[in-house]
Design a protein around this nucleic acid. Sequence first.
RNA 1: UCUAUCAGCCGACCAUCGUUCCGCUUGCUUGCAGGCGGAGAGGAAAGUCCGGACAGCAAAGGGCAGCAUACCGGUUAACAGCCGGCGUUGGGUACCAGGUUCGCCGGGUGUACCAACAGAGACAGUGCCACAGAAAAUUACUUCCGAUGCCCCAAGGGCAGGUAAAGUUGAAAACGUGAGGUAAGAGCUCACGAUGUUUGCUGGUGACAGCAUUCAUGGGUAAACCUUAUGCGCUGUAAUGCCACGUAAAUCCUGGUUUGGACGAAUUCUGUUUGUCCAAAGUAAGCGGCCCGUUUACUAUUCCCGAUUUCGGGAUCCCGGGAAGGGUAGGCAGCAAGAUUGCAACAGUAAUGUUGCAGCCAGAUAAAUGAUGGUCGUUCCGCGAAAGCGGGAUUACAGAAUCCGGCUUAUGGCUGAUAGAUUUU
RNA 2: UGGGUUAUGGUGUAAAGGCAGCACAACAGAUUUUGAUUCUGUUUGUCUAGGUUCGAAUCCUAGUAACCCAA
Length: 135
Amino acid sequence: MGNSQRYFYGKTDKLKSRKIIDLIFSKGKSFSNFPFRVIWMPVANNAVLQTGIAVSSRNFKKAVDRNRIKRLMREAYRLQKNELAESLISHKITLAVFILYIGKEMPAYDVVFEKFTKIISRLIKITDAAIEESV
RNA sequence: UCUAUCAGCCGACCAUCGUUCCGCUUGCUUGCAGGCGGAGAGGAAAGUCCGGACAGCAAAGGGCAGCAUACCGGUUAACAGCCGGCGUUGGGUACCAGGUUCGCCGGGUGUACCAACAGAGACAGUGCCACAGAAAAUUACUUCCGAUGCCCCAAGGGCAGGUAAAGUUGAAAACGUGAGGUAAGAGCUCACGAUGUUUGCUGGUGACAGCAUUCAUGGGUAAACCUUAUGCGCUGUAAUGCCACGUAAAUCCUGGUUUGGACGAAUUCUGUUUGUCCAAAGUAAGCGGCCCGUUUACUAUUCCCGAUUUCGGGAUCCCGGGAAGGGUAGGCAGCAAGAUUGCAACAGUAAUGUUGCAGCCAGAUAAAUGAUGGUCGUUCCGCGAAAGCGGGAUUACAGAAUCCGGCUUAUGGCUGAUAGAUUUU
RNA sequence: UGGGUUAUGGUGUAAAGGCAGCACAACAGAUUUUGAUUCUGUUUGUCUAGGUUCGAAUCCUAGUAACCCAA
C-alpha cells in the first residue's frame, strides 16, 4: 500500500467468499442509511478490507437496472474507501462489509456519492469505538 | 409525402480515474504488486416454446403405457422451423342472369390478386349437444290421410293404421328446384343441379386436378375419449472427470443360496470334504412407469443356544444395496476453432448446398465492459427574415453464463431497395 | 442455470363446456338514548390477448405476474 492517491477496487478488494458472506449475514452488525443498508463485521482475513455489493432482484426485475446500480455503487465506493482502509491499518484490524441497495427506484449518481461519504465516515467512527471497547 | 416488407447501422475523438482476461516484462513473499501492449455484450444476449451437439446413467434390446407431431414435395445434424406447391374459407375484382323505389340489392360462375388455416380420420366405435322445440338422431305435437281392416252406419264420424309435404324452436332440423305419382305423402320415380363414395382412364414425383362410371344423401364436435401413421430411453454443463481440505471406518433397515454334471486334489477309500468350470432354478440390483428379455453379483471370520454327521435360530466380522444424517462452499478441466464469420463464384424458382480466399472474434463466477470533463456530429425547444445565438438530450427494447439452429415476445431513430396509394410537373 | 405449480369481488375459497356462487369485509337501512351484537338490502370479479365451439372461468396457443424446488 502506501500509495493512497490511487483509487483501486480490484479483485482482491471484493468480498467473494461464500463462507464469510454467510457468516456476516447471520452474525454481523448492521445499520441503514436509506436507500442503503450496511452489514459489517471484523473478520480474520488476508485483506484489510473486503466489500460486497448487491441489489435485490425482487425490486429490480431487469438485469440492466441491477448492473447500473451496482456500477454506480462501485464507483462511489472506489473513490472514498481509502480513508477507511487507512484507519483500519492504523488500528491493525481487518473488516468485511456488505452493502445492499434497498430502494425501489433508480438513484442518481450524486445522491449515491453523498450517501457513501456518510456511510464511510460512520464506519470509521464505529470501528474506532469498537477498538476502544476491546482495549 | 405516406404505408407495408426486406437488408444494414446505432455516435466519433481526446484527457483523467478505474475494471475482467490474455501476452511480454521488472520485483520479490512463487502468486501477488507495478509497467507496456492487445481483446472485452445483442438482434433479440430475454422468454425457455421446440430441435440438436456434448456428458453421465455397464450396453441402450423388444412390447405396452406415456408424450409429441399430422395436406404434399424439398431443405437440414435435427425440428412443431424454413422454401415451393395443393386444397378449404373469407375478401377483392371481372362476367352472367334476376329484382329494383334507379340509390342499389341479394345469387351463381371464373380468376394470373390478397389474407388466414392445430389442414389426417365424424362411413371404425363410444360419449356430449343446456334453454327452446314434436323431435338434437331410428323421433311425431299441431297437421294431412284414413285407400286397407273394424265399429256406429244415409251422408259422414270414430278407431287401428299410414305419412313427414306444411307449421313453430334453435347455432344446427333429415339433399335443392320443378314435374310425375298417391288416400295422403315421401329420392318413391324422372329431369336439372349440389355434395360425397366405388371403379377406371388421363396429367402430375406427390398432395391433387379433369373426364367417365357406380352407389348414396341421417347435423355438429377429435383444441371430448379415441383410431391410423410417424418419431421419442432418462437426466442435464450446478452434467461429468480430477486435485486439495474435511467428516462418520459411526447409526438404522435389508440381502449374502439350492440342485445337477465335468475335471482335479485330500482322505479314515466306492463314500465324505474341498478347488475350478459349465448348466438349471432362486434371490438382489440395473436397463428410472409396467411386462418380457437380458446383464452383473451370490466372496464371509469367530462364537453361543437347541439338536448332536447333515440341520435350525442368534450375535460378531467382511461385502453389496437402501434410508436418514454428517462434511466441503476452494482450485483445475469441461470452457471458447465452430453444423464458425466475411467476401466471391457456381448449382437450385427458393429454403439451402458446394468450392475458393481471408480472419480468429467476450469468457466472468456475490459475477468484468464503468465514471467525470471537453470538442465535433445528430436531434429537440425558444428567439430571429437569414446567418446564428441560448438551453436540453445523446437515446428504444434491453446485459453474455456450455454451445449452436429456429420460434415467440419487447423495441426508438437513421440509411438503402422493392411494391402500393396520393399530389405536382 | 435447470425444473415445476398457481392466478376467480378488498380477503379466503367453490363451480362435469350451458344463469359465476359462499363466507368475511365495505356501504346503506332497521333495532338501540348511543355503540357493539343481530336482521334486511346493495356494490365490487374469472390475470391479458388470440383461437376451437352454437356457447369458454373451464379446452388449446402465446404472453404477464406470483410462488416453490434442485445446489
